[in-house]
Design a protein around this nucleic acid. Structure first.
Lengths: 198, 198
DNA sequence: TTAAAGTAAACAAACGTTTACTTACTTTTG
DNA sequence: CAAAAGTAAGTAAACGTTTGTTTACTTTAA
């Protein structure tokens, strides 16, 4: 039996992300993707059931999976609060600024009903993504160091600004000066820490 | 000469938003829109040049225009910082939670290259949206009350959490309890204020 | 009467997906 | 230990639909 060509599978995923990032999710078609990856449309259907299946797997496995890994690198829930937060913020910044296609699909995850639904199901049913962050926040709440709020609210307060700053980073790539530097990120992180700390 | 039927124009816009919110931008087609609005596809092309033109005008004029108006209601840049922030946060929360289709398109504005580009051009060339907020922040920086940062960075720190909380609000509509209440919003607003204040 | 607003029906192009076939590798066989 | 048999991977070309947009015509009110 002829074995699967794993390079082709990888090409499908990375080129799909590329197209979504450059032209938008609404402009990704199976035929365009096949042509760009230099394969037959049929080949995509060997690896994925249909377009929805491709998009959901791309989002959940490829993008969110790697994103989670990158963000949690060298992080552990027993770190001191400020130290842990800075680690998470810097990991997020460094990973996303070098992976624009992933960032684009993550943004679409907040817009597209298809991807949003897929994320919620995965997140609710199988225990959440980013479990160590859950533990980290819970520990710090119990120690009385930070304010007690539902986890989703914590997430909005502590991590939505860094995602917005990454978005600004990409917007500023087309402009004369880059205002979003590692220094700015750390300043912002301190501001967020100051707010949530008791 | 036969006059334009303004009701049809309004129907096109509101039904387009509805479809985008329910099924996603990638599932909005001109023919589907025409059928849902009970008009001929040709009628859309009397009012809009093409699909891009429709989407951009929907986003910039209809959605962002009304959103700006709602957020700035009863706000003025001379308010005390904490008071002004709470006004802006509550206006945002109340408007968006009652206008899910608008919120959906705003989210797409951060993902879709088409809408993102349209927003940046409008925002950079014609003086920004939300000009009174610019003044408000500048005044408070100059008075030494809040930290001095680029405006885009301020925006990420001060307003991205409220948008994320609205997203949580909608996610929790399908669940047994709503955790995002006006009380939670105000608590979060105070946390953000505490962080940015000198 | 005039002219833009509006409709029904159609256009070519592109869509997601499938059919019919070939290729390339593993396993079985003499 | 080669050669034949078997099988999933992969391709080229096509399927019927739907896409964005237009053509040819009708309606409406100044």
């Amino acid at each position: 039996m002829r074995p699967k060509n794993l390079e082709k599978e990888a090409a499908i995923r990375s080129i799909a992300l590329q197209i979504i990032s450059d032209e938008g999710l609404e402009n990704l078609s199976m035929q365009k993707l096949a042509k760009a990856a230099n394969i037959s449309p049929r080949t995509i259907y060997i690896k994925y059931e249909n377009k929805e299946d491709l998009l959901v797997k791309l989002f959940i496995e490829e993008v969110l999976g790697n994103y989670e890994k990158a963000v949690l690198q060298n992080f552990n829930p027993e770190m001191k609060f400020a130290e842990g937060m800075k680690r998470l913020w810097l990991n997020t910044f460094h990973y996303l600024k070098n992976n624009k296609p992933s960032f684009s699909l993550i943004q679409y995850g907040k817009s597209s009903p298809l991807l949003n639904k897929a994320f919620q199901e995965k997140n609710i049913l199988q225990g959440a993504f980013f479990a160590p962050i859950h533990v980290f926040l819970k520990t710090n709440v119990e120690a009385g160091l930070i304010k007690d709020l539902p986890h989703d609210v914590h997430r909005a307060l502590l991590f939505s600004p860094i995602q917005d700053l990454v978005s600004e980073y990409f917007d500023h790539l087309d402009r004369p000066v880059q205002i979003i530097t590692e220094e700015v990120i750390l300043t912002c992180c301190e501001i967020v820490i100051k707010g949530i700390t008791n």
